[in-house]
Design a protein around this nucleic acid. Structure first.
Length: 290
DNA sequence: AACGTGCCCAACCGCGGCAGT
DNA sequence: AACTGCCGCGGTTGGGCACGT
């Protein structure tokens, strides 16, 4: 069928968003929510198409967005979920609170995929069994980013970031920083930390029932959100006692149930499980140096 | 210091699915 | 049942930045 273009492109801005546009968008959504993306830009006085607004909000301006490097644990989770779900980035993102599908997709293509391929090439097929043995002895995945990710994380350069995001004044704590809600792995298990908990009211805006089953999509509940205050997010936000603890512990259990992994395991067992997943993904080279 | 190259990531594009009429 | 409109998803692109020479 003939599909209407997403917007009349005449007179509409494209490309990078200015702080003023961000401000307008956030202010509008804050007040009215986003019942209709198509109508939103006009009502908010933005010369953008609805899609662009939606994307900007979802991927950048949403208050529950978590910025900063992905931890090794998050990457491991992505690897695993990608094995299970394929390129269903939104489904994968649903398991990583605060992360967007776009971000995960980017990380996959720029870091993880590359690394997995490198490892696979370097290792050939032969070492699978050998490494399986080693894996049980060696230290598990620590927060070691690939050599290709030598760049300092953008979130660390918070100047640029916050300049662009006037309302999200405090980037969420980088994942390399300690997580305050008790979602840390034992030191022997990993030098990194688990993903931060998120404090959002969780509601699935996803129609896909399988997504819902996987659950835990950290979407803002816009009904409550639109009438609520929209405070800047800061460190306290992430560690607040009000936070709904959606740390990896909870995620592990949920995923484990889905994937047949040990469901009531200790943290060490969990780590062993992740290690196996990584091994299977041929990702042992990084781990072995840790 | 200037230039070239590679990488990262925000944003765009087009399509499929679903709901409403 | 057919059509329309909107939303959400996944793939792709290109601007900007960092790093190497």
């Amino acid at each position: 069928m003939g599909r209407a273009p997403c917007c009349e492109k005449e007179g509409l801005r494209r490309g990078a968003w200015s702080p003023e546009e961000d401000e307008r968008l956030v202010a509008y959504i804050r007040q009215h929510g986003h019942p209709n993306w198509r109508a939103l830009p006009r009502q908010a006085g933005l010369l953008r198409c609805g899609k662009s607004c939606r994307l900007r909000w979802i991927n950048y301006l949403r208050p529950d967005i978590k910025r900063g490097d992905f931890s090794a644990d998050e990457e491991a989770l992505i690897v695993r979920l990608h094995r299970e779900l394929g390129n269903r980035w939104s489904a994968i993102a649903a398991q990583l609170p605060g992360r967007t599908d776009n971000e995960i997709k980017n990380v996959w293509h720029t870091h993880i995929k590359k690394r997995l391929e490198e490892d696979r090439e370097a290792a050939g097929g032969r070492r699978q069994q050998e490494d399986n043995k080693k894996a049980r002895k060696s230290k598990p995945a620590a927060a070691k980013r690939s050599a290709t990710a030598a760049k300092p994380p953008k979130a660390a350069g918070a100047d640029d970031d916050s300049a662009q995001r006037p309302f999200l004044t405090a980037s969420s704590p980088g994942l390399s920083s300690s997580v305050s809600s008790g979602v840390t792995f034992s030191a022997t298990a990993t030098e990194s930390t688990a993903a931060a908990a998120v404090s959002v009211s969780v509601s699935s805006g996803d129609n896909d029932s399988s997504h819902r089953q996987l659950g835990a999509k950290a979407e803002m509940d816009m009904e409550s959100f639109s009438s609520a205050e929209f405070p800047p997010i800061d460190e306290a936000f992430w560690s607040s006692p009000d936070v709904v603890d959606m740390g990896l512990g909870a995620m592990d259990e949920e995923l484990a149930g889905l994937a047949g992994a040990p469901s009531s395991s200790t943290r060490d067992e969990d780590m062993a499980f992740w290690l196996n997943m990584l091994l299977e993904a041929g990702d042992m080279r990084d781990l072995s140096v840790l």
